[in-house]
Structure formats: structure tokens, C-alpha cells
């Protein structure tokens, strides 16, 4: 717990050769004061983050179930058995594929929409800029449970979306009850809810694009698309990276949309890794749930690493 970290505040004086009595004493005192400032946070952080993090890791190598909560002596170490069970579990594999689908389609789509909005807002319009920004950002601040209510209603077979589609001659599907269309519905909702955040980040990044360079390129006869791909996009690379990492950390944990919209169905077609984990928790299979959550953790760490590599290497 916090003991490992709070042991450090006493610096062994021998370690700092500069240790003349005066400064060393002052440094020791400052270290003590510094830790006093840190302790309230560290205590809560240790109890509610580090301890669960470590116990979940430990749990993933045991057969811990809800019945063992009162009687931890009955728990036995099973090595990597939970992980083996997971990979042999068709439902878990399905949930990994669903998550991959959501991430692979959702991230580029959200980024493209957010970038288009940011570029449009940055294209020199003066009036209503703030109003537009507020409008595009509003979905971000609203509760997923509340918006799910209206989205379920809109996505009904004879709901608003299909009425609008019908007006242009398209016969829309039963979005949430179709194994083909349930996931695209989740992605649509996720894009709607997250584009605002990325739009703001991209707008900030666009301020770094040099207007002189854009004007010079225009004089040299570069068209708008060329200016965008040759000047704007390269300048935005670090911002795009930040956006991609933020989105992938969030999208890989994708849970609330299916939880409130489809319960993971139909036929598990919107069951994500987080959702699978949550279900195992509900069944009392704590060991298996912990193992699944660590698989997700590793996936998040790996994807972030890959993105850093991919977008950094071209510099």
C-alpha cells in the first residue's frame, strides 16, 4: 500500500555527498513537507487505484469467485489457466473482434469528421463561430444514459431516422436488432458523442499552421486540397497523434453505448471486451473477469505504443 511510497521521504544523508549539515537538514525538512502535501492524494490513490490494480492482477492468476469474498482461504493459484480459458472462449474471441471492429472503423471516422469540422470552423468564418463550436460540443457533455433513451427511440424500425431515410427513398433496417447494423449504430453514436472533443483539440492544433506558408503555396498555384495535404496535415501530425491516442484509450474500453442500447446483442454482435468483463463480474467469476481486463489493458498499452511509433517515425 502507501507504505512502500511513504518510506522514501527520509533520504539517506550518505547518498548525497554535498551533505553539509545545514543544507542536508533543510533538504530533509523540505522532503518531509513535500510528502505532507502529497500524502492525502497518495493515500486515496493507493487505496482506490494501486491496491485494486495489483489485486486484480493477482486475482487473474487465481480461481477467485464471488463466493470467496468472505472466505479467501478457499482461493487457489491456477497460473495462467484463466487466460487459457479466455482464449478458448468463443464469446471472448467474438468480443475481441467486435472491439477491433469498433476501434478500426470508429477512430478514423471520428477523426475525419472532427478534422472536417475543425477545418470548416477555421476557414475564416467570423460570425457564429462560438455558436457552432457550442453546438458540435454539446453531445460531449451529456449523459450517455439520457442520450441513449432518445437514440433508441430514433433508431426504431419506424423511428425518426428511417422516416428521414424513407423520404429520400431508402428503406432503413431495424438498426438495433440487426446483427449487421447494430455495430454501425454504436459507431455512429460514438462519433456523434466524441467528435466535439477532437474538434476542439484539432482547432487548437490548426492555430500552428503558418498562414504565410499557405499563402505562398496559393501564389505558387497549389489548390486547396494540395495545401491541405502538404502543409496543414504535416503540421497537425502531433495533434493527430494526441487525438488518436486519446480516442483509442477510450474506444478500446467501449462499453456504455452497448450497455444502454443493445445489452451487447443481438447475438453478442455489440459485446465488447469491457462488456464481457462486466458480465463475468456479474456471474461472480472474478478471476476470469480480472484476466479479461488485463488483456484489455495490454491491448491499450500496445495500441498506444504502435501509434506513437507510427506517427513519430515519419518526423
Amino acid at each position: 500500500m502507501s507504505t512502500t511510497s511513504s518510506r522514501t521521504p527520509l533520504p539517506p544523508a550518505s547518498r548525497s555527498p554535498r551533505g553539509a549539515a545545514g543544507p542536508s537538514l533543510r533538504r530533509r525538512k523540505q522532503a518531509l513537507v513535500a510528502w505532507m502535501f502529497a500524502v492525502p492524494f497518495v493515500a486515496i490513490f493507493a487505496v482506490f487505484m494501486l491496491v485494486p490494480l495489483v489485486s486484480s492482477f493477482a486475482m487473474s492468476f487465481t480461481d477467485f469467485t464471488s463466493r470467496d469474498v468472505q472466505n479467501p482461504a478457499a482461493v487457489s493459484f491456477v497460473g495462467i489457466e484463466q487466460y487459457a480459458t479466455l482464449l478458448a472462449n468463443a464469446q471472448f474471441v467474438h468480443s475481441m473482434l467486435n472491439t477491433a471492429y469498433f476501434v478500426a472503423v470508429g477512430i478514423p471516422l471520428t477523426m475525419a469528421v472532427a478534422l472536417a469540422l475543425a477545418v470548416a470552423l477555421n476557414s475564416g468564418i467570423k460570425r457564429f463561430r462560438t455558436a457552432f463550436r457550442v453546438g458540435f460540443y454539446t453531445p460531449v457533455v451529456t449523459s450517455i444514459v439520457a442520450v441513449a433513451v432518445v437514440w433508441r427511440f430514433i433508431l426504431q424500425p419506424d423511428g425518426l431516422l428511417n422516416t428521414i431515410l424513407g423520404a429520400v427513398g431508402i428503406h432503413g433496417p431495424d438498426w438495433l436488432n440487426s446483427t449487421t447494423w447494430a455495430m454501425p449504430s454504436m459507431i455512429l453514436m460514438a462519433v456523434w458523442r466524441n467528435m466535439g472533443t477532437l474538434m476542439i483539440i484539432f482547432l487548437a492544433g490548426l492555430q500552428n499552421v503558418s498562414t504565410e506558408m499557405l499563402e505562398a503555396a496559393e501564389v505558387d498555384g497549389a489548390n486547396a486540397w494540395q495545401r491541405f495535404t502538404r502543409i496543414t496535415l504535416p503540421t497537425l501530425r502531433p495533434t493527430l497523434l494526441l487525438g488518436a491516442v486519446l480516442l483509442s484509450v477510450g474506444y478500446l474500453q467501449f462499453f456504455e453505448e452497448p450497455f444502454v442500447m443493445t445489452k451487447g446483442g443481438p447475438l453478442d454482435s455489440t459485446l465488447s471486451i469491457s462488456y464481457f468483463t462486466y458480465n463475468q463480474f456479474g456471474f461472480g467469476k472474478y478471476g476470469l473477469a480480472s484476466a479479461a481486463s488485463y488483456v484489455l489493458f495490454v491491448a491499450i498499452a500496445l495500441l498506444s505504443l504502435v501509434q506513437f511509433r507510427a506517427l513519430r517515425s515519419k518526423d
Binding site: M49, P52, L53, S56, V249, Y278, F281, S290, A301
Partner: peptide, 10 residues
């Protein structure tokens, strides 16, 4: 970077 479900159970 820790997903919410990791600490959820403990």
C-alpha cells in the same frame, strides 16, 4: 491508461 474495468472488481 488503466481501463476502468481493471480496478472495478477489486
Amino acid at each position: 491508461m488503466v481501463p476502468g474495468v481493471v480496478t472495478f472488481v477489486p
